[in-house]
């Protein structure tokens, strides 16, 4: 189901699509905090210098400048590492969230980013941003999903946070894929077992699922691309027949995908058939230095370990 011919780094997709959108919509402008190359907004800066603003290593000011531009009718996109930009929480809370101004924040470098280590890795960003009134929060897993989410965000009159990881991934969607804010997407259907994930970790999950299918264990996959808004009822429908559920997220355990799943279950009055539910996450820890694939293995996010949870922890080995 993965089209690897279209394998691309999501931040590159973001950078290229931003130029495409900038050509169509003259209101789009971009603010960089000295991270044009790393967050791939450099192309936009080259093509539209008059709508590009380099504020330097000053994220708080950048967020305020974006707010002023948005209040004047522009569509400002401010990008930085997710951890740096969401770290300016009070500025986002007051200037953007409280004032309900459609500033578009792009946080790159979420999850296991590599050798730069924990200070640069976005592992609390979703939790922080989900807590803010008026904000919409999304995370794409594939190139097409990245484009569709950006198309939506540009049109939305709300402030948005989009977590875009740097991983190079293939495509899971057909060309006619429609992004619907709020709705979880059941990429692989299965009655009894499922994995729930978000972002590029989806691809580790797909590998794990194909590994499990060789062992005659059928496992489905639900992709949560829209974290806020979130359609709890849609997820409840997807989960009502499931017995074994594994949540996989490169984020702390509080206020991310795991929280959404547990809330869905807790909020529902109808009974579930769940026998096992486990969340694989950063468990309130920081990440550390290392190759992304080594970090994934070390923390148990590789496809082999994900598969192992089903046949060992969930006792599904036949």
């Amino acid at each position: 189901m993965i089209n690897n011919a279209k394998k691309k780094a999501l931040r590159n997709v973001f950078g290229e699509h931003l130029v495409y959108l900038g050509k169509k919509n003259k209101k789009i402008c971009v603010i960089s905090c000295d991270l044009k190359s790393a967050t791939k907004t450099s192309n936009f800066f080259k093509v539209f210098p008059k709508r590009s603003f380099e504020v330097g290593i000053a994220e708080a000011n950048g967020l305020g400048v974006a707010t002023g531009l948005a209040l004047k009718g522009f569509i400002p996109i401010i990008s930085s590492f997710g951890t740096f930009i969401t770290g300016k929480f009070l500025e986002i809370r007051t200037s953007i969230s409280y004032n309900n101004v459609p500033v578009k924040i792009i946080g790159t470098h979420g999850g296991f980013i590599g050798k730069d280590g924990a200070t640069q890795s976005g592992t609390q960003d979703l939790s922080l941003m989900m807590s803010l009134p008026n904000f919409e929060v999304f995370q794409p897993c594939s190139p097409l999903e990245t484009e569709k989410i950006l198309d939506y965000v540009i049109k939305s009159n709300k402030p948005s946070y989009v977590r875009i990881c740097r991983n190079s991934v293939g495509e899971v969607y057909a060309k006619n894929f429609k992004f619907i804010p709020g709705k979880p997407k059941e990429l692989i259907k299965s009655k009894i077992n499922t994995i729930i994930s978000s972002g590029p970790l989806i691809f580790n999950c797909i590998d794990a699922i194909s590994h499990l299918s060789k062992k005659k264990i059928k496992v489905g996959l639900i992709n949560i691309n829209s974290i806020k808004p979130f359609d709890y009822e849609a997820l409840r429908q997807m989960l009502k027949s499931k017995k074994n559920i594994l949540i996989v997220e490169d984020h702390v355990s509080h206020g991310g995908i795991s929280s959404l799943v547990y809330e869905t279950i807790a909020k529902s009055k109808s009974k579930f058939k769940i026998l096992n539910i486990k969340s694989l996450n950063l468990d309130g820890k920081f990440s550390e230095s290392g190759n992304p694939s080594d970090l994934e293995k070390f923390n148990g996010f590789d496809s082999k370990n994900i598969a192992k949870i089903f046949y060992e922890k969930f006792n599904l080995a036949k």
Partner: peptide
């Protein structure tokens, strides 16, 4: 009210956004 404020230190950045927008416009 052009900007809700109260957490101090934030207004000037937004005023810069207004100034930049007026330059583009």
């Amino acid at each position: 009210i052009e900007l809700g404020t109260g957490a101090l230190g934030q207004g000037l950045s937004v005023s810069i956004g207004f100034a930049l927008a007026n330059i583009i416009l």
